[in-house]
Computed example of a mutant assay.
Amino acid sequence: MENQTMGELLNQYGTTERLYSGDVVEGTVISSNSDEVMVNINYMADGILPKAEIPDGNPIDFKEGQKIKVYILKLDDGDGNVLLSLKKAFEIIVWDEFQKLFDGQITFNIKVKEAVKGGVVGLYKGASVFIPASQLALSYIEDLSSYIGMTLEVELSEYQMATKKVVASHKNVLKRQLAAQKSDQLSRINVDDQLTGTVVRLADYGAFVDLGAIDGLIHVSQMSWRRVKNPSEILNVGDVVDVIVLKVEREKEKVSLKLAQVQENPWETISTRYAVGDVVKGKVTRLMNFGAFVEVEEGVEGLVHISELSENHVTRPNEVVQVGDEIEVMVLELDVDNHRMSLSLKAVTGMDLEDYESLMPEEDSAPATLSDLFGDKLKNLKF
């Protein structure tokens, strides 16, 4: 080997070109430890990349066989090895990369180094990249320091090589990802599907449910068989609910839902509990100019028309009853299809007290009918 020329040595190690300090060459990682990375640069001596010349200062991140571009600091570090720098290589090649990334709107990953006024700063191959706070996420971020150490996928929104100004956006990447997820989920949702979601927002007209990539709306009319004035009567933010898909508008990205478990509508079985002539107990819930509404069970209200409040002339319902009064009334008419019940107070108050008490059903028996209470007197009763 002592008689070999430099050219013969270079040929032996696979290259015919000389290397000089200041060159940027591609090499292959041979090994790494906590202090340095050894790199094969196709030269008669291997290259040493010390920890101090690595931007993130972590040699063990480099794996055997990995290709990297390095800058030659010295051809001989005193121990017969070529001294390399990744920092210097990045300083030379990164700006050309930034131009390509900017022109092609290509996304890339950066590691957040620090939080600064108005945003965070990340590193890409040793170069600083600024991400404004408004471009970090889809919603407002309270604590920017929570992003330190995170690796984010970004795209360049501004790049000026002359001033080394590099500004990126993570928000734009998230928007595209969300749009793709929405499109995918919308393509798979169909009418009558049963899904599980979380209530994320309440509005006067309904509740928004997070289904994953998209929110669906439960209109107030689809929350219960009874009239719901405000969604908060049924749901709370954070509730996990089972829902059924009523309608999918893919172009508008809208999904209409209803609660999967809605309590049985009492009007559907009301005929098994009430009949014309029954005397029932109820509570006055509302007073109108034309009469009083009486709730005979949860969700079932009947109307006592003003003419049925008393045998005497009544100008206003509050002359006879008040909201909250518990009274006994007689069923005059039952309209199951339209959810209407007509009641009479005067038919009950006009009865003979002794006859009424004797004919009232026991606590566990069926409600008294009109014929039970009046018998032949029914023929003479005027409504």
Rank of each mutant, 00 (worst) to 15 (best):
K100C: 05
V70L: 05
D103R: 09
I92V: 15
D77S: 10
D76H: 01
L83M: 13
E97K: 13
K88V: 00
Q99R: 11
Y71A: 04
F102S: 12
K74A: 08
V70N: 03
A89I: 09
S85W: 00
W95M: 09
I72S: 03
K87V: 11
G80C: 09
D77Y: 08
I93D: 09
L84H: 07
D79F: 13
F98L: 13
D96N: 15
Q105T: 05
G80W: 11
V70R: 02
F108E: 04
S85D: 00
D96S: 12
F98D: 10
I93V: 14
Y71L: 05
L75G: 06
K87M: 07
L101K: 09
D96T: 12
D79G: 14
D79M: 14
D103E: 12
N109T: 06
T107W: 07
G104E: 15
I72K: 00
D79P: 00
S85K: 00
L84I: 09
D76L: 01
N109F: 06
V94C: 01
K87F: 03
Y71E: 02
I92F: 10
Y71K: 07
I92G: 03
E97P: 05
V94E: 08
A89V: 06
W95V: 06
V94Y: 00
F108S: 05
G78D: 08
L73H: 07
N81I: 00
V94Q: 03
E97N: 14
K74W: 02
K88C: 01
F108M: 08
V94A: 15
F98K: 10
L83P: 04
K87D: 03
L86H: 08
N109W: 02
D77I: 04
F90S: 10
G104I: 08
W95D: 05
Q105K: 14
G104F: 05
T107R: 14
Q105C: 02
E91P: 03
I106L: 12
I93R: 08
F90H: 14
S85G: 01
I92D: 09
K100E: 14
T107S: 15
D76G: 03
Q99E: 15
L83Q: 11
F90V: 00
F90Q: 09
I72F: 05
L101V: 10
T107G: 11
I92E: 14
K74Q: 13
Y71M: 03
L86M: 12
I72M: 01
G80V: 12
N109M: 04
N109V: 08
F102E: 07
G78R: 08
F102L: 07
V94S: 12
I106P: 03
G104V: 01
K88L: 05
I106C: 03
T107C: 09
N81Y: 07
E91M: 12
Y71P: 06
G104D: 12
V70H: 04
D76K: 00
K87T: 12
G78S: 05
L84V: 06
F98W: 13
D76W: 02
V94M: 04
A89D: 05
L86T: 07
L101T: 07
E91L: 11
D76T: 00
I93G: 06
A89W: 08
I106M: 10
D76R: 00
F102Q: 06
L84D: 02
I106W: 03
D76V: 01
Q99F: 02
F102I: 06
K88N: 10
Q105L: 06
F98M: 15
T107N: 14
N81G: 01
E91V: 03
G104H: 10
D96W: 05
E97Q: 15
W95Y: 15
